[in-house]
Design a protein around this nucleic acid. Structure first.
Lengths: 347, 347
DNA sequence: ATCATTTATGTGTTCGAGCACATTTTTTTG
DNA sequence: CAAAAAAATGTGCTCGAACACATAAATGAT
């Protein structure tokens, strides 16, 4: 029950706290006798250093920079900002400063510029969203050279030099979408996979999701869907989809691999005679609207807010209390429908 | 960027740190002049006290007692224990001691006995699962009289004197089950609602879930299910259900309001000709097994592990850093199928 | 104006760990 | 065996906030 301190142990072992300290931190300069005695006591007592005291002694001001796509340009990133803001608020009283930097999700040079700026600051850690595969590897190497800790969210990236990745298993994510589609879309008909992004995107997000989706449906024994994939820009979508649905077809479901699913739902609403199930990603207000009126059947929540918040929490607790950071943390993949979205938006 | 300390402010204001301290804590004995000067500075600088230092100064050993049903008797409570163990581990280095007490979920007197024992200990806080409505109110009053903070999980309880409730919206939980059932169970047929508990249970859990379930289905315009409710003990289930399904019927779905859904799935498996959708609660190993082979279609995750962990976290951060505890925290209600259960069990 | 009281202000210690530096003990060497 | 070098041990300050206690200034009473 009683909490032992270094002083207690020193007294019990008949040595000074300096010696105990040297044993604990293995800094040598301790006689075998003293070492044995203290080590034994530490074991017996199961000594736990007071992390609050330790943290106070080691107190520095830590600086974390967050680099993410501009939420004004793509609302998917808004919750991410929210998570960061919460973390800022939570850790400001612990001497941890967090700065946000936004780049334009459509332009690689914007990403590079922002990173240059951050590099100049030499922060203790950066949290980046490596949406641009090639460029990200490039800048991460620069951070490594300057001994800046690199944490990532959202986009998986196989690379040494990344301390932490918080995100989701994207292939599994596609499989989940497929399993839901199978439950609700009439069998043996056509299913569209639509990659939709209003901006250029060289990430592997969509490919992995498609892979998982197809993989699941391929292995079904009791049903057989006809899959068609379309990679579209927002601007082309309207014409293409109207074209498709105006002609005779047997589409029973559409899987949209991004958060822009609302724009698909909007168009499909123009065809009330067709019964097309729609599954897409993320709890944008616009998506929730269509979820509520059942134009969208399921959304899969990628939980960007939790991703960013958790990632910063890991860094903060590492700095403050030396807590180990797991190399990878895969968040649960939430299935969201018109009845349970509330719990994921209200927190 | 620079972090201001009390000393800094004292120097800037031309007073001693004692005076600054008195202003911050409104302990009086400060002249109007000094008060104004210091207050102004605190505002300007947006002074944030170093919570680590404050915590060290105020360091006490805090004691939390957890009172929950014995996980050996009902495996639903196993994750709850896991969450507690994680919290124990996490906070032991911060001078927070957590003790677990188990009672027999079938016997109110066991619950009362355990609480008497805990009362004797006079802990700083208790975390209880108020499964017995009447008895819980009774013991909570006793804790209040001794100024022991009371946190609750799992079962909502309208009562002053409860500092925190972490759980779910159970009516909504029922609605979610219904919305899923509607998506997968053929329309205009019969749906069974089964309350199933191997032990006596005077909680309101099942009633609220049933209410939500019915409420959702009642308001449907395009489908009409015939609902039948059964309150069964595990021992009666076998005979009753066989009886039902052996005779001509048009059951298209079963909603089990507890984690014992596996025993229903097991029986339904004996009728391979019937296509009956099953929805129930919680990620017990046994349930996952049936989820994987599609005998169970959906599980709703009540996340007992997160409930207990979060609840203790709230208390710990209150003790250590004076963080406010929200009166109520409703966790998201996770929809789980054969593809996404992994993310909810592996953490 | 003087002393007593009240009120205001400042000083110094504590919390527990970490580390620099001072001091003591042991070992080595000429 | 003494002096020098090396190894072991102990002491004391620091981190920032909190608070008890000491001291100083301002007010009141005679």
């Amino acid at each position: 029950m009683k909490k032992y301190t270094i002083k207690d142990i020193a007294k019990l072992a008949g040595v000074s706290k300096g010696t105990v300290d040297r044993v604990i931190h293995k800094r040598g300069k301790v006689s075998q006798t003293a070492l044995d005695k203290v080590t034994k006591l530490l074991e017996e007592i199961d000594y736990q250093p007071n992390l609050i005291a330790r943290s106070l002694k080691n107190s520095k001001n830590y600086h974390i920079c967050v680099i993410q796509p501009d939420p004004e340009i793509d609302p998917y990133w808004q919750p991410c900002t929210k998570g960061v803001d919460e973390a800022i608020n939570e850790y400001k009283s612990f001497g941890i400063t967090i700065d946000s930097y936004y780049f334009n999700h459509a332009e690689t040079h914007s990403f590079l510029e922002v990173n240059e700026e951050v590099l100049k600051q030499s922060p203790d850690a950066v949290l980046i969203t490596p949406v641009f595969h090639k460029e990200s590897i490039e800048v991460i190497k620069k951070y490594n050279a300057k001994n800046v800790i690199v944490s990532t969210i959202n986009d998986p990236l196989e690379l040494n030099g990344i301390t932490s990745y918080v995100g989701q298993d994207l292939i599994q994510s596609g499989r989940i979408a497929a399993s839901l589609m199978e439950m609700i879309a009439p069998k043996n008909q056509e299913i569209l996979i639509i990659h939709l992004d209003e901006v250029f995107n060289n990430s592997i997000h969509m490919q992995l999701k498609e892979k998982g989706f197809k993989n699941y449906l391929k292995n079904l024994s009791n049903s057989n869907y006809n899959l068609k994939t379309y990679s579209l820009q927002q601007s082309d979508l309207d014409e293409k989809l109207h074209d498709l649905l105006n002609n005779p077809n047997n589409v029973s479901g559409i899987f949209v691999t991004t958060s822009k699913v609302y724009s698909v739902a909007k168009i499909v609403q123009d065809f009330p005679d067709l019964d097309i199930k729609i599954i897409g990603y993320d709890l944008l207000d616009e998506n929730i609207k269509y979820l509520k009126n059942n134009a969208i059947d399921f959304l899969i929540n990628q939980n960007p807010k939790h991703q960013s918040y958790l990632c910063i929490t890991q860094l903060a607790e590492y700095f403050l209390f030396d807590k180990k950071i797991p190399k990878q943390k895969l968040l649960p993949i939430d299935i969201v429908n018109s009845e349970n979205f509330d719990g994921y938006t209200n927190d």
